[in-house]
């Protein structure tokens, strides 16, 4: 996979990668029934998902600013 030369598209790609990683952590934790799974789910999976979503939102805002 190659990152796009376009800044907006590159940010969307990185956001997607973060989200896929977060979803993978989440899926793993669903199959793992130990108490530590809850902690990993929230601290690692949740953090990756929130970062991915925030980067997506940031890419929208920064994209609009560039258009102006």
């Amino acid at each position: 996979m190659k990152l796009s030369a376009n800044r907006l598209e590159r940010r969307l790609q990185v956001s997607g990668i973060l989200l896929i990683l977060g979803l993978l952590v989440e899926a793993t934790c669903l199959l793992w029934t130990r108490p530590i799974a809850f902690v990993v789910f929230l601290c690692v999976g949740g953090l990756l998902l929130v970062l991915g979503v925030l980067l997506y939102l940031f890419s929208l805002v920064s994209g609009n600013q560039q258009e102006r």
Binding site: L19, L23, E26, L30, G45, G46, L49, G52, V53
Partner: peptide
Amino acid sequence: LFLLPLVCLGIGTTY
């Protein structure tokens, strides 16, 4: 990139 991850996070937390 916005709705589905938040839905997954919410349902996962409830689970």
